[in-house]
Amino acid sequence: MWPLGRTDRAARARYRDEGRLDKRDPAPSRLSYKIERLWLTPIFRLGIRVGVPFALVFSVSALWLADAGRRDAIRLAYERVLTSIQERPEFMVTMMAVDGASEPVDRAIRSMLPVELPVSSFQLDLEAMRATIEQIDAVASAELHVRKGGVLQITVAERQPEILWRSADGLEMLDRTGQRVATLLDRAARPELPVIAGDGADARVDEALKLIAASGPLGPRVRGLIRIGERRWDVVLDRDQRILLPEYDPVSALQRVAALDSAQDMMARDITIVDMRNPARPTVRLAAATSELLTSQITGASAP
């Protein structure tokens, strides 16, 4: 059936096609069916939605960064921004304050720290600076922080000298743990500190301090302690008297000598050495002249 008057074949065919177009086939074409199935495949979907954008961004940026000039430009811009932030006045450190340090230690700290003030607080490595300060012998511990107002606050705890150690190098002040504090040029500068001597004496400072505390009435007469053979102590009194202490438990041996002294006034006599090295058999040595005198009195003969 076609309109009257349209008798050419092409027009008839067109009319037929128009009629057919109405009943559109809902079926998908083979290609669109396959494409949709492919799209519903989970791995493919993931690849398209994640993999492809990722690969695209990655490859474009990699291509762009392949040029060294661009990489440098990015780095320069980054550094410029970084410096402009770091060097804002809020972050600048302009002063250094040292608390708890004596004058020479303060000077040493200021000279040792390699910091040119003013500097940005981002560039201060406080941990490394603390390690540097704690290398000074006189400093027991240091605490650093950047205070408000651009002040680098350094709080120092100094070592307290407890004893003097006379060695071949000279006279050195040691603290309770045997750590060196400073060199002393003149004994008279610190008359209140006891003196020890001998190799390895610095390792046993606490024992030496205990012995000095235990010397009791002999205390004022003690000139110092000598470490013998890195093994045991000698107590040196004035008038060239010596007390030889044992290796083990020297404190009680010294207390026995002190007790003898207070009971019998032993050390006031003409004795050069009290030998306590064998605690079961204390021995004394008389001075040579007295010894001869006594011998002659006992034998009745004069000395040869």
Binding site: D25, P26, A27, P28, R30, Y33, E36, R37
Partner: peptide, 8 residues
Amino acid sequence: RAIRTAVQ
């Protein structure tokens, strides 16, 4: 084609 329509 009809099967394709339904399945799709």
